[in-house]
């Protein structure tokens, strides 16, 4: 695998070349109100890669918060269905500068939506998306990627991977998709130098030192459901206000609701929208019966699903330790604390 240097002062050239290839570049930057978001950028200066990752989850580029699925018209000859999708689905885009936690989240989402009956609309978004990962040098105080088995400098799942230094990036083209846009970078690629191999390690060490803790969750992998009846859940469900923030900002939360809209006697459409298992209406039957009637059951379901059910079904945690759930929670519930409580309850 070849590694080259690409200097930050040359990045605008790359961005123009990418634009000429018809690609939109999306990365983290500040909006007009100084909020850190993922947004489309036209120049390298608009990026703010030195900041922590935005609160906004990266999944909104593969699956928008609401999306029309199809529109219909009832005619004398029968019902006519027109599959629909946002224009953004066909737009060729590069997600530029995703941390390993977010790249891993995209890998998980791909694996989940592709299983059993593949989700064609989401596949459409994914096939038009190229992922440029970046080694993470600035974690937040909520981050716990290493707890979930992800290194802050892991390039797994990325099409292209960057390792940042003060003046340049080290760049690796890892997949066919990544190589397909190598031409945009070609003019600016410089040879790497002797000690360039050390950068990743340096960043990894510095980031790991910044993380507040690493919890050994391997010890409870496959056993988390044994904590189902333990008393510690009440501590969290008492103060949880079921705002849904953790699920909406989580890059690996995949649940959605499906609704129909009737625009006239003969026309209408069906759409889907992000949904949350924290909401009471999530499991509400038409009869009025609700299997998860209390906040405790819903909070426990979320944790069980992320840390046990997906392990059983897909052999992977559906959590990348990005910390967004902790950052967004208005009442200070900390997922790492829940993991530690599970460990304690299981004497691990």
């Amino acid at each position: 695998m070849d590694t080259n240097r690409i200097y930050k002062k040359d990045m605008n050239q790359v961005f123009s070349a990418l634009k000429k290839l018809g690609m939109a570049v999306i990365g983290q930057g500040f909006d007009e109100k100084q909020r850190l978001v993922f947004k489309e950028v036209n120049s390298f200066q608009e990026l703010a890669l030195q900041e922590i990752t935005p609160l906004q989850p990266v999944k909104s580029f593969l699956f928008p918060p609401t999306e029309t699925m199809f529109s219909y018209q009832k005619t004398e000859k029968g019902t006519r269905l027109t599959p629909e999708q946002e224009a953004g689905a066909s737009k060729k885009k590069i997600l530029f500068g995703l941390r390993p936690c977010d790249v891993h989240a995209i890998e998980y989402i791909q694996k989940f939506y592709n299983g059993n009956f593949p989700d064609q609309p989401i596949s459409h978004y994914i096939e038009n998306t190229i992922v440029v990962g970046i080694a993470c040098a600035t974690p937040s105080n909520a981050c716990f990627c290493t707890t979930m088995g992800i290194s802050p400098v892991s390039s797994s799942g990325a099409d292209i991977f960057l390792t940042p230094t003060d003046d340049f990036f080290l760049i690796e083209f890892l997949t066919e998709k990544g190589k397909s846009i190598q031409s945009a970078f070609a003019a600016s690629l410089k040879a790497s130098e002797a000690n360039d191999g050390n950068w990743k390690q340096k960043i990894e060490q510095s980031t790991i030192n910044s993380l507040l803790e690493k919890i050994n969750v391997e010890a409870i992998k496959g056993k988390v459901n044994q904590a189902y009846d333990k008393p510690f859940w009440k501590k969290y469900s008492d103060v949880c206000i079921a705002c849904g923030g953790c699920t909406f900002d989580c890059p690996t939360c995949t649940c959605f609701d499906v609704r129909d809209v009737m625009e006239s006697k003969s026309d209408g459409y069906r759409y889907r929208a992000w949904d949350s298992c924290s909401f009471a209406s999530f499991t509400l039957h038409a009869s009025g019966h609700n299997p998860r009637n209390t906040k405790l059951e819903r909070l426990r379901q979320r944790i069980m699903h992320k840390y046990h059910y997906t392990v059983a079904n897909m052999q992977t945690w559906s959590c990348t330790g990005c910390g967004r759930c902790i950052r967004v929670c208005p009442v200070g519930i900390n997922t790492r604390s829940i993991l530690k409580d599970i460990k304690e309850a299981l004497h691990e």
């Binding site: 989940f112 059993n116 995949t254 959605f256 889907r272 949904d275 298992c277 059983a312």
Partner: peptide
């Protein structure tokens, strides 16, 4: 087992119970 369902193909999460 009857359950609240939306997509019917294991994606929306509404009928998830346990594993």
């Amino acid at each position: 087992l009857e359950n609240h369902m939306k997509c019917g193909i294991g994606k929306c999460g509404h009928c998830n119970c346990g594993e």
